[in-house]
């Protein structure tokens, strides 16, 4: 009787998530390594911007079209944008309520939005992990 040999676990596919993060929301400069990846989550690469309102939906589409498994934007806490309306603008653009919008053909399940304060490092990482899990099998 032959013994069952444990099979080697299949190598997990390397994922890439691209995040566009407002430098006044989470403490992003403390959270990045030299490769602009999150220290706590090397799969997540970050573009740091002065405000989340600067993100163009086309830039998120560009990331998805070029191999990103998901993309997200992170701005200041809702109602508390340092520049007053940046987080509202990007939310409305991604939700299709303000121009320029995401294309209709974009898989919106792969597009995330987070709004946190500079004291919210851990809540952001938790929300990101949840978002990544939700996009894992897409």
């Amino acid at each position: 009787m032959s013994e069952l040999q444990p099979t080697a676990p299949a190598e997990k596919k390397k994922r890439v998530i691209v995040g566009f993060v407002c430098e006044r929301s989470i403490p992003i400069h403390e959270m990045l390594d030299a490769q602009k990846a999150l220290v706590d989550d090397p799969e997540t690469k970050i573009i740091v911007l002065p405000c989340s309102g600067m993100v163009k939906p086309t830039q998120m589409e560009l990331a998805l079209a070029n191999g990103a498994d998901a993309t997200f934007v992170c701005g200041c806490a809702m109602n508390d944008c340092h520049y007053r309306t940046g987080n509202i603008m990007i939310r409305e653009r991604l939700e299709g309520e303000r121009n320029p919008k995401l294309r209709k053909s974009t898989d919106k399940r792969k597009v995330g939005m987070f709004f946190f304060t500079m004291k919210d490092r851990r809540p952001f990482l938790d929300a990101l992990a949840q978002f990544k899990a939700s996009t894992e099998n897409l």
Partner: peptide, 28 residues
């Protein structure tokens, strides 16, 4: 802040030190 940059569908307004083309090159 660059909110105008995010609003422009034609890349017709830019922050000189945070140019859209640089951001897109960084993404790639």
């Amino acid at each position: 802040c660059g909110i105008c940059v995010g609003a422009c569908p034609f890349q017709a307004i830019e922050l000189p030190n945070t140019h859209s083309k640089t951001i897109e090159a960084d993404v790639l």
